[in-house]
């Protein structure tokens, strides 16, 4: 096992037992993620990308294979609050104001009020939500709610950020904007990010490594290392290099489930 890996997965499989027989959600997954990488998991629905992310987060249990997160078991990593998780829906608690939502994990960790207040302020500023502390979730737009949920994940101050299609429910304009902000955040904090998406441009624009997955059984089809520079703006999407990578991802996705046609 590589000591410097944030995530090290070897020959991991996960089978759900259902009434209709076994569903092979993940099959023979090998993945290695180094510190500071931005890894996108992309694939059609049913390819197990969310299941893989949930396995890393110890929200699902693998049936075979090895997985380590920060050099320990996913369970130990979860117990030590090694990661922040951003769900597809913002999952803010409706009875808590934005500030108190961000403060929720800090309360559970048992931090004192002063530290909580400081971290809430810092992280709301990081996602440009200063001034919305006292608002309730329903008073914010979908994009702002998702930013608040990112602030909440960051408040834990994890080195690893797991994001499950966080911008999937948002319109393209808001999504572009949040993608740009997320890259800035990544550059500023140098966190390792695992990002689930089904959008090719999003994956290419954000990632340093793109994991193309295919369904039935859920497996990794291809891992594409991005040659794009770390420092990027939205304009990079007009370059030939961007289009080449996007093309490779698209080809990979097509090959991955060509038997369906």
């Amino acid at each position: 096992m590589d000591d410097t890996s944030v995530i090290d997965i070897n020959d991991l499989s996960l089978t759900f037992k259902t009434g209709d027989g076994d569903v092979h959600a993940l099959s023979n997954i090998d993945l290695d993620v180094k510190p500071g990488e931005f890894v996108s998991l992309i694939g059609p629905s049913g390819c197990g990308k969310t299941t893989l992310l949930r396995t890393i987060a110890d929200l699902e249990q693998p049936t075979a294979g090895d997985i380590s997160v920060n050099g320990m078991s996913p369970h130990a990593a979860r117990m030590s609050r090694a990661y922040g998780y951003v769900f597809q829906a913002a999952a803010l608690y409706p009875w808590r104001t934005i500030a108190r939502n961000v403060s929720l994990p800090l309360e559970i960790m048992g931090l004192d009020a002063a530290t909580r207040q400081k971290r809430v302020a810092e992280n709301l500023q990081l996602v440009n939500l200063e001034g919305f502390e006292k608002k309730f979730p329903w008073q914010l737009s979908g994009g702002m709610q998702q930013r608040a949920s990112i602030a909440r994940a960051l408040a834990v101050e994890p080195d690893l950020l797991l994001m499950d299609e966080p911008f999937g429910a948002l319109d393209e304009i808001v999504r572009d904007h949040l993608n740009e902000q997320l890259l800035k955040l990544w550059a500023k904090t140098n966190k390792t990010i695992i990002f689930v998406t089904h959008s090719i441009p999003e994956a290419v624009y954000l990632s340093s490594k793109i994991v193309v997955m295919s369904p039935r059984p859920g497996r990794i089809h291809e891992i594409i290392d991005s040659s794009l520079p770390r420092d990027r703006t939205l304009d990079i999407r007009e370059t030939t290099e961007f289009h080449e990578i996007a093309h490779r991802v698209r080809e990979g996705l097509r090959q991955g489930h060509s038997y369906e046609d």
């Binding site: 987060a57 929200l59 609050r81 990661y83 998780y85 999952a91 608690y93 559970i108």
Partner: peptide, 21 residues
């Protein structure tokens, strides 16, 4: 909701914390 409960799991919250919060 399931995602609200999952969130608590990612914080490794205790049963009482899940109940109370």
């Amino acid at each position: 909701e399931l995602s609200h409960l999952d969130l608590m799991r990612t914080y490794s919250a205790s049963q009482w914390q899940v109940l109370w919060k």
